[in-house]
Structures are given as C-alpha cells and as structure tokens.
Nucleic acid binder design. Structure first.
Lengths: 191, 191
DNA sequence: CATTCCATGTAAGGAGTTACATGATTAA
DNA sequence: TTAATCATGTAACTCCTTACATGGAATG
C-alpha cells in the first residue's frame, strides 16, 4: 500500500478530517504525494478498520459534522516499520516533459503555452511553501530552527517541495524562452 | 493511457526494440517517466495493433533476433493531439520524503542512511545525464546548441532531469546532515 | 560452471483515476 | 439564486506493480 503511509505521516501533524486531508493532499503534501478525495476517504476507512488510526466525531454548528482522525500506537508502529524499510525509488511522471522531449517534431506553440502556465503554478506553490516554512519556524531563523526546533520533519519535507518548485519554475521559463526564440527564427525562414 | 505517449516520444529518437526501451525507461527517460519491462512489451504490442508504431524484425548473429519499432504517421498525429491537450499536473510520489516528514516521531537512523543512499544515486544519475547532454550537443556550447541545434527536445528534457537530480542530491545531504546533528545532540542528553 | 546480458513475455493483484452522487451552508 | 465551500462517499475502469517464466550467448 502506498497512500497509507503518506496519510499516517500527515496525521502526525494533528487531527484532521477526510475533507481537511483532501486540502492537504491536493497541494501534494508539500509536493511529496498527491491523492484524490475518494482515495482519502477510502484509505481512512481502511486505516481505521486496521486500527492504525482512530476517528472522533466533531459536532459543528452551521456546517456538517465531521470525523477527525489520530494515529494510534499501532499506526506509529506501522510508520516505524515503513521508515526502516528500503525506500522505493522516486516516482515521477510528467506529461509536460514528455511533450518537450517530442517538441522537435510537433507544433511548439501549445507546449510553450503549457510551460508558461506550469511556471505560474510553480511560482504560486513556491509562495505557498515559503509561507508554510515561515509559519513552521516561527521567529527563529532557518539555521537555528533546524538545529533546535522541535518538529523539523515537515519543515525538511517542505524544503524539498521548495527546491522542486523553484527548479520547475526556472526550467519551464528557460525552455519556453528557448522554444519561442527558435520558433521565431523558423518563421523568419519559411514564409 | 499514460505510458503510450512516453513510448511514442522515446521512439521519435530512433528505432528501438522492447529491450532497448527497457534500458531507456529504467533510467526514467531523463527522469520524466519510469516504466517496467513488462509494461513496455505490452504497450508496444498495443501501439502496433493500433497502428501508431510499426515493428521490423532485425536478424542478429550471436544473439537473439529483435523487433525494432518506428512511429507511424498516425502515431505522430496522436503525439500532436497529446501535445495540444492540457498537461496533467506533475505527478510525484516519494517514499523518502514521507519518511522525512514523519521523522520527528521515528528513529532517524534508517532515514539518514536512505538519504545518503539516495544522494549517491542522484549523483550517479546527474553524471549520466551530463554525459548524455555532452553527446547531444556535440562540439557546440550549450547556448549555441539551444539556438541552432537540430533536435533540442531531448536536450531540454534532459536538462529537467539534471535539475531534479542536482536538487535531490543537495536536499538529501542537507537533510541527512541536519538529522545527524540533531541525533548527536539528543544522544548527548539522554544517557 | 556461474553469472550477467540480451530478448520477450504471462498472470494476478493492488493502486490510482474518472465519473457520478448527495446534501447542507455561506458568501456574492 | 447562483456559486463556492464543507463533507462524504460508490462504482467502474484503467493503469501499474509484483511475481513468475523461458532460453540462448557471452563473460569471467
């Protein structure tokens, strides 16, 4: 199982409902994992049935009640075993890079548009991640926080997200610029 | 279908057999897609049945014969449609970052070991990608090649791979160092 | 003689995606 | 009153992963 450990890891950060988790996993949990809402609800049901998490009903006024979940001792044990097991290689699959790979034989215009769009998204995510980092480290500077702060796990994983988004952003813009310039030169020749 | 377009894109680079593709996809085609051998053989069968690629038997001496594949006109059409369609968001799933995220409540030792191992792998891939880039650009420098070279697609996608591996490498080492130092400080306190 | 490389698959099962469904509340 | 947000799912399908299978040639 794959989502399992990502959910457990996310729930270490506090009690969350299925809906709250969908928000967290929608951004990709600091970009290390993505999951659709239906997946999460199904996974929470399974994890609770397996005793790795426990749910608690929270009554709300003005909006539907919700169930929030916490990791149990058994869940923590599962995470420990998971952390000790050899890591699977990073899994990355990206449509856009496939398109760039093939761009020599294709119309570059839509690819360029998508690169620009992706760059915007990456910039937005980077912004978001930086806010999360600032909130996590409070009034300490990064170095001090990493040395003395209490919970560095989420901070470190978010740093990974920052790096990825920054590089994505830069690569997209560089690639878009390269393709744009080449397209301009080709146009100049063909008419 | 997902693999489909990655295979078509890879086959634009020339004629390859299933086996050769497994080698290419094993590295992740410059890190943008990974696929297992069985997936590839199945996908090639399907693509040929759909007329998007054509196979050709190559008789070899001293080793088993093989079938190599080329993209057809229909295949190129499929790729064009794919390139014009909106890109799906980058899909990234990484065990190791999940472990780091949860590391505050876990034994950091195995996580640190895995971070170092991942750093080594990333360095190796980075090396490989740099060789590929050098081969692709020939005796031109990068700027000139990107401006005037003939096939920049594979070069640009490989650049994406380089960025990813470089960041992975640096992040792994920085994270391993942070966790190591914190572990040392905790040890100093608990005995 | 054992291992690695070349070459190609089948079969079963687990994971993820897409499409659809429901219903209340709050903000524009 | 229309849309967005909160809240939770089911069902069908596609895709991917894991395990297993085969067999010759080259390398050490």
């Amino acid at each position: 199982m794959a989502l399992k450990h990502a959910v457990l890891a996310a729930l270490l950060g506090g009690e969350y409902s299925g809906y709250q988790l969908t928000k967290i996993f929608d951004v990709g949990v600091s970009n290390f994992w993505y999951a659709a809402p239906q997946q999460l609800y199904a996974e929470l049901t399974r994890l609770e049935a397996d005793g790795l998490i426990t749910g608690r009903e929270v009554v709300q006024k003005g909006r539907p009640n919700k169930r929030v979940f916490t990791v149990t001792e058994a869940g923590l044990g599962e995470l420990t075993a998971f952390a000790a097991a050899p890591a699977k290689p990073l899994l990355i699959r990206d449509d856009l890079v496939v398109k760039v790979h093939a761009v020599d034989r294709l119309d570059p215009a839509p690819v360029i548009a998508q690169l620009r769009e992706r760059a915007r998204e990456a910039a937005a995510k980077l912004d978001l991640f930086r806010q999360i980092l600032a909130r996590l480290r409070g009034d300490l500077d990064e170095e001090t926080f990493l040395r003395e702060g209490e919970h560095v796990g989420p901070y470190l994983s978010c740093l990974a997200g920052c790096r990825l988004e920054r590089e994505t952003h830069d690569w997209c813009l560089q690639t878009a610029r390269t393709l744009t310039e080449r397209a301009a030169r080709t146009e100049g020749r063909t008419p």
